[in-house]
Design a protein around this nucleic acid. Structure first.
Lengths: 229, 229
DNA sequence: AAAAATTTAAAACAAACGTTTAAAGCTGTC
DNA sequence: GACAGCTTTAAACGTTTGTTTTAAATTTTT
C-alpha cells in the first residue's frame, strides 16, 4: 500500500509538472514524462485518459496546493484597517507566484500560469472560476474600502489590475529583468521586500486615484488619508 | 517586380505572424504557415533556412515595426518636468503593447511577447538587447528624476518594474480579466484612459516611495511633490 | 491456493512533423 | 531561342508524435 515507493500515478503527475512547465503543453511529450517518472508510455493514457487529461489534473493540483499554502486573507482583529489587510494580501499573492524562489524548486506554477496566459487552453476557464475569481473579489473589496465612496467602480477595477499586475509581472517577466540585471530574485528575503514595495507603491497609487476622484482642489491639506499607516 | 501580388517571402512572414501568434513556436507547423501563405512547404526552408530562422526574423520584424510606430520619448520643451515625460512614456509603451486593440487586428506582438516570456527562446536575448534595454534605460532616467536623490538605486529599479508591470499586465492578462469581466479593452479610447490611470497610479506610488526614503516624519504637509500634475 | 481484477510492459499504429531532393517553371540577358 | 540563375513544385525522407493493442506481471479478492 504505497509505503516506500510512490504510486505510478503520482510519479507521473510529478514528472508532468517538470516537463509541462519546462516545455509547455505542445512541446512536452508523453514519452519524456513517462521516462522521467520511470513509467511506461502507456501509463498516461491508462491513468489520465491521455495527455490532455493529465495536463488538466496537473494544473488544478498545483494551483490548489499553492492557494492552500498561502492565504491572502485571515482573521484580523476587528479594527484592522484595509491598508494592513492589503499588505497581507500582496504578500500572500506574491508568495503564490514566487513560492519557488524561497523553496528553491522549479517555478512550475508560474511557468504554467505564464503559458496559460500566452495560450489559454480549456483549463484556463476552470482555473479562473475556481481560483482567480474569489481572490479578485476579496481584493476588490479591500480596494474599494481604501479608495472610498467617491471613486467609481471602473477606477477600482483598474487599481486592482494595477496592483495585481505588479505582482504577476515580478513573476512573469523574470526572463526580461534577469537579462537586464535589474533585480536579483535569488537573494534571501526578496519576496517580502517586494511585497512591501508593491504595497507601498499601490497604496500611494490608490491615494492618487482617490485624490483625483475627490477633486484636486482639496489636495493641499493632505487629501485626508495618507501618512497614517 | 511585385506590382500587385506580394513576394512569396513576405507572404510567408505575414502568415507566420498569424500562425506563430496563435499556436506558439512548438504548436505552429510549417505546413499551416505555407498553406495560409499560399506557398509550397519547402518555401520556409528556401527563404528562411528553416522554421527557427523564420521565427527569429518574424519577431525582429514585428517588434521593430511597433517600436518605430510608437516612440516613448520625444523632444519636449526644455523645462518639461519628468511627470509629463513619464505620461508620454507610459502611453507609448501601452500603445506598443495594445496597438492591436485600436487597429483592430490580431495581437500578434503581444502574443509573441507573452510566449517568449513563458518560454524564452534564443530570440529573447536579441530582443532584450535590441528593444528592451534601451527603453528601460530611458524610463529609469525619468524615474530617478522623479524619485529624487534620496531614493536608492534598487528602489528605482523596483519602481520601474512596478510601472512597466502594469503596462505589460494589461496586455498579458487579458485572458484572465476578460473572463472576470473587469474591464472591456474593446471600448474606444481605452488605451489612453489606461495610460492616464497608470501614469497617475505610478506617480502616486513613486511619491510614496520617495516619502519613505526621505523619512516619514515630514509627511504631514503633503510630502512636497504631488497635486501639481 | 485459485480466481479475478488491476497494473505494467513491449511493440506497433497511423498521423504529423521539419526537412530534403530533384525536377519543372520562370525571368532576364546575350 | 538558348542559356544561366532564381523560384516553385510535388514527392518522399527519416523522425517523432499520441495513442492503441495484446500479453505478461502483479495485486487483491475469494
Amino acid at each position: 500500500m504505497t509505503t516506500d515507493k510512490k504510486n505510478t500515478k503520482e510519479k507521473i503527475l510529478e514528472a508532468a509538472g517538470e516537463v509541462f512547465a519546462q516545455k509547455g503543453y505542445a512541446g512536452a511529450t508523453v514519452r519524456e514524462i513517462c521516462d522521467l517518472a520511470g513509467a511506461n508510455v502507456a501509463s498516461v493514457n491508462y491513468y489520465y485518459g491521455g495527455k490532455e487529461g493529465l495536463y488538466k489534473d496537473l494544473c488544478h493540483h498545483l494551483f490548489a496546493e499553492v492557494f492552500d499554502q498561502f492565504p491572502v486573507t485571515k482573521d484580523f482583529p476587528e479594527g484592522t484597517g484595509p491598508e494592513e489587510r492589503l499588505a497581507f494580501f500582496v504578500e500572500g499573492m506574491l508568495n503564490r507566484l514566487l513560492e519557488h524562489v524561497q523553496e528553491g524548486g522549479l517555478p512550475k506554477k508560474s511557468q504554467l500560469l505564464a503559458r496559460e496566459l500566452a495560450a489559454p487552453t480549456k483549463v484556463m476557464d476552470s482555473l479562473v472560476e475556481t481560483f482567480v475569481r474569489p481572490t479578485a473579489g476579496q481584493a476588490l473589496d479591500l480596494i474599494r474600502r481604501i479608495l472610498g465612496p467617491n471613486v467609481p467602480e471602473k477606477e477600482a477595477a483598474k487599481c486592482l489590475l494595477s496592483m495585481v499586475g505588479q505582482c504577476v509581472y515580478y513573476s512573469l517577466a523574470r526572463p526580461i529583468f534577469s537579462r537586464l540585471e535589474l533585480l536579483d530574485l535569488n537573494q534571501p528575503g526578496i519576496v517580502q521586500e517586494l511585497a512591501e514595495h508593491i504595497t507601498r507603491f499601490s497604496l500611494g497609487g490608490m491615494a492618487a486615484v482617490r485624490r483625483e476622484a475627490e477633486g484636486d482642489t482639496v489636495s493641499g491639506a493632505g487629501g485626508g488619508r495618507e501618512g497614517m499607516a
